[in-house]
Design a protein around this nucleic acid. Structure first.
Lengths: 252, 252
DNA sequence: CAGTGGTCTAGACCACGCG
DNA sequence: GCGTGGTCTAGACCACTGG
């Protein structure tokens, strides 16, 4: 790692067949790298467009395009009259961006959670492929129940690469909003996730845990969350009782 | 309807508290209306940015911003050196934009389909609320099975407001790609959809139709599709056997 | 080659938030 | 009032497409 580091000033080489990256893409890459390096932390204000333009020797419009692209990726947000800021994993963000379960009436509620178990172990072949790890690496795995209005509705199994989360779960109880915790405690920002959904049957164990009938249909959400550089950072399998809740998704 | 129609030339009134719409938003509204009116049809090329800018008395940059916004809504697409075009509901679009079921290995296949039944009837209260219709309006409702590689996997119930689809299903068999048919035969472009997912149990009837065991868990996809002006135009409930297939969704 | 969209610049003015 | 982002303009040049 750490190849090509002295790119602070953009080269003036014309864009040819061998060099398809535009100026605003270079600006974007520089800013993205600064986020990865935690040079600007979540909640911080970035330098103004003018300052960035001056520093990087491009016009304000070019900086603007780069920033706008990152805003539409939800990495940054802007407030007119104030400035441009690094996004944080707030409650609101967790609720509307990374949590797709709502009540039958459409109401958004972030459920409470309760840890059932937590262990460190050697990565299994399936976990290796899901988290793109090497043989012999360690993971932390824990299960938890999630409650809406004190009614247990979801059981989750969460697997993390121990490399990125030293001491996770042993030094303190993981909180309800995990993404915010990853960000504040480990400097890891989840910026994307892929969810795979299936319908399954509640196992006897799940039925006991959730206090429902075994054989009840459950919505399975199998999700890989990725950090800013695109590497997987969490594998989560959630089984959700969808009698009173539903998963929502927009298309188009 | 048809208030405020003579807005072809943009007014020069300064943007105040009572007038928050910017120039590019006005340009966007004009172009969107032309799409709704089928003035430019799917697949057609729009006038060049320069032409639009001249016609609407704004600069090329303003037109560009309006067009780019609509490109990111998938209403238009651009090809450098050629022009800007109205999006069509092609196979590819159906497959990647409005069909979220893929194989367990991630492969995209558009299933074949087979109509089971089709009827016109008075709208029910539930259908009224789903499709935002009035009491006494008529709908067309039909069921179909969908096959992946000749294996029946999905059973769908589709409800359409008859008002927008005169003669639907009676004059000819609805084809596999419905959205393309809505567009080519009725001038109706689906531009957005909201999907609500739950896990349910296969009913005895569904089990018979799909040749599976009753009681098998099925993924229910309850979807409202909307046309360019935002009005609902199709209600579809799909029950999918997810043993060999899965629903995918990106977040962030 | 001419025409299209794509990038980049420079500068003007507006709307907003805060002191 | 001042600094921020937001809008708008005008013009230059590049890259791609098709004839």
């Amino acid at each position: 790692m750490a190849k090509k580091l002295k790119d602070t000033r953009l080269n003036k080489m014309p864009r040819t067949a061998k060099n398809t990256q535009t100026k605003y893409q270079k600006v974007e890459a520089i800013i993205r790298q600064r986020l990865i390096d935690n040079l600007w932390r979540p909640g911080n204000m970035l330098p103004s467009e003018i300052q960035l333009a001056t520093e990087l020797k491009v016009s304000q419009g070019t900086v603007r395009k780069a920033l706008n692209d990152m805003v539409s990726e939800n990495l940054l947000f802007r407030r007119q009259g104030l400035g441009t800021f690094v996004s944080e994993h707030t409650e609101r963000r967790a609720l509307f961006l990374y949590f797709s379960i709502v009540g039958n009436d459409g109401s958004h509620i972030l459920p409470e959670s309760n840890i059932l178990s937590c262990e460190e172990k050697l990565v299994s072949p399936l976990e290796r492929s899901k988290l793109e790890l090497n043989v012999g690496e360690m993971v932390v795995q824990f299960r938890r129940i999630r409650y809406f209005n004190n009614i247990s509705t979801i059981v989750e199994t969460i697997t993390l690469p121990l490399e990125h989360f030293p001491g996770f779960g042993t030094e303190m109880e993981p909180p309800n909003n995990l993404f915010r915790f990853y960000q504040s405690a480990y400097g890891i920002t989840v910026s994307k996730a892929e969810e795979h959904l299936k319908a399954v049957i509640a196992s006897p164990e799940e039925a006991t845990i959730l206090n429902i009938k075994p054989g009840l249909p459950m919505l399975e959400i199998d999700r890989i969350a990725r950090m800013l550089d695109g590497r997987p950072v969490e594998w989560r399998v959630s089984h959700c009782d969808t009698r009173n809740y539903k998963y929502i998704s927009e298309r188009g």
